[in-house]
Design a protein around this nucleic acid. Structure first.
Lengths: 137, 137
DNA sequence: CAGTATCCTTGCGGATACTG
DNA sequence: CAGTATCCGCAAGGATACTG
């Protein structure tokens, strides 16, 4: 994929995002970029069907509230299926949909690259912050 | 790329994101997912070097403040170079760095997919919202 | 022209307590 | 167990006016 291909793609995408789709774009990326969304998608991708609490146990730090909210959003976008067995006590299982799986596929290269280049960013920031500190001093 | 490959990748990525990198991950995606970041990256990718106001003109709706802020963040992460000519009146040009270009490459497939599947999401949401409305009624 | 300063609204994310 | 209700702090994003 050379530079021109990239730009053409990029052009198409950004043209397709005019006005109306802006909300969609933001919302979608918001979900993908949410505090917990990626973790949930990943967890469900790896383990398949899981119950609410099981997901929570596999992601440290998430509260019940945020987990529920995240799952609702993902479900609303059709990325996750919710199977309610309507039993007592409640039993609900979550599962990544095909759409969710496709999203995961598209996300992974990006995340991989970010992680692999973590140091680059850290260094860039250090340099920037140092220079900025000098300016202020 | 089959399901297992995806999951392995995904596993690696998410393992690499434990604790410390969480901030990094969020910040980076925050930049990539910001209201204006992608637009700026794309614009600079397509047009090359541009002045502050030129970028603004090519992106409708962005305010001076947000454009400046976005550019600062991108610059801090090393995604964008800032060339200050130190003239009067001021003349500053912005340019996508190689790192920024690489990010653009990784983002494009994701965006393309989102845009191509916009309808899918819209429909999923409509269904969800309708069902939820019924529940409340 | 590029950028800062100020003020404001909104929604995310978290803590805690409660319910069917 | 799964989920809701309530309250809170914080930062993003925006509108507006000003400056070197």
């Amino acid at each position: 994929m050379d530079r021109n291909e990239i730009l053409q793609y990029s052009q198409t995408v950004c043209d397709g995002l005019r006005d109306d789709d802006d909300g969609l774009r933001r919302e979608l990326l918001a979900h993908a970029g949410n505090r917990w969304s990626l973790g949930v998608i990943h967890t469900l991708g790896v383990y398949g069907r899981l119950r609410h609490a099981e997901i929570g146990r596999r992601m440290h730090g998430v509260t019940q509230r945020m987990l529920t909210r995240t799952l609702r959003q993902l479900e609303r976008d059709g990325l996750v299926f919710r199977h309610d067995f309507e039993e007592v006590p409640p039993r609900v299982e979550y599962e990544l949909s095909d759409t969710g799986m496709e999203l995961l596929v598209r996300m992974v290269p990006l995340w991989t690259w970010i992680v692999e280049n973590a140091d680059r960013f850290r260094q860039a920031r250090e340099v920037f912050d140092r220079q900025h500190a000098d300016t202020n001093a």
